[in-house]
């Protein structure tokens, strides 16, 4: 029974994606219509300067937001797992988890209102653009990184760090030689998650982005409200290809790492 549901569920998840990708190779001008095989929409996609510009902005933004989120979220996870019962821990924990569950519309509105209020009070940040977008995405990503890192530290326990301290390492050395190498995979996973969240975000970007900072999802959202275009079909193929390639590279890296150690 559960296997039947599993394959049905996977079919449901994949059907629109595969259909989307399949019709990318159709010559027809309308989406989801077969008009014979053609590469023309990939050529059109490669020549779409606006889309490429938005995509490169999205990649840079996602990388920056993910890096910021990794640093902030890593610190949050470490504080939650290793600082014991300090004053205000409950509030700290609730604030760290809040972006995970707050409806995006509320988060987006709240961040925008904050940026406007800050600009009024201090003159910074000037208007909305890449910087505000970066902060908004980093604040969402940091919450995810914190969960991953906290989980890793909790399952690891304090024993290894105690052992290092016992062998004469001071707090900074314990962190550099023991804690950091052991949570590095979690930090990397958190970075990837934060990258994806930023790269896929429409709602936070709608609130906190300004003129001149149009991300790929924002551009697509404005263009695709009425449904897919043939170029969007081609883009779906590209994205799917990149994701599969990334997954394969990761697998190969895992295999080679396991063989070495």
């Amino acid at each position: 029974m559960s296997r039947v549901v599993l394959w049905l569920g996977l079919g449901f998840l994949w059907a629109p994606v595969l259909l989307m990708a399949g019709f990318a190779f159709s010559d027809a001008r309308q989406p989801f219509v077969w008009g014979g095989f053609s590469w023309r929409w990939f050529v059109a996609l490669a020549g779409n300067a606006r889309l490429l510009e938005a995509a490169s902005l999205s990649v840079l933004l996602a990388a920056g937001a993910a890096t910021l989120a990794m640093l902030a979220g890593g610190a949050m996870g470490w504080v939650l797992a290793r600082q014991g019962a300090f004053r205000g821990r409950a509030v700290f924990g609730a604030l760290a988890a809040a972006p995970l569950v707050l409806p995006e519309v509320v988060s987006g509105l709240a961040l925008l209102l904050l940026f406007v209020a800050l600009e009024r009070l201090t003159g910074w940040p000037q208007g909305r653009g890449v910087l505000t977008l970066l902060l908004a995405h980093a604040s969402l990503g940091a919450a995810y990184v914190a969960v991953v890192v906290q989980g890793r530290l909790a399952s690891m326990g304090p024993l290894l760090e105690d052992a290092a301290a016992d062998l004469g390492a001071n707090a900074a050395t314990v962190f550099r030689t023991i804690t950091l190498p052991l949570i590095a995979p979690s930090l990397a996973a958190g970075w990837g998650l934060a990258f994806f969240l930023s790269f896929d975000d429409v709602v936070l970007a709608s609130f906190t982005s300004g003129p001149g900072a149009t991300t790929l999802p924002l551009l697509l959202f404005s263009q695709l409200r009425m449904g897919a275009t043939p170029e969007a079909h081609a883009l779906a193929v590209v994205m799917l290809g990149l994701a599969v390639a990334g997954l394969c590279l990761w697998q190969i890296w895992l295999r080679s790492k396991n063989r070495v150690s």
């Binding site: 994606v17 259909l19 896929d200 790929l216 999802p217 695709l224 969007a232």
Partner: peptide
């Protein structure tokens, strides 16, 4: 599990656009 996550990778907007078309 990868098959569960991969459809997410084409992006939220494109997936929704696919549904509109379908």
């Amino acid at each position: 599990l990868a098959l569960v996550v991969l459809p997410l990778c084409i992006g939220f907007v494109l997936r929704m656009a696919a549904w509109v078309g379908l």
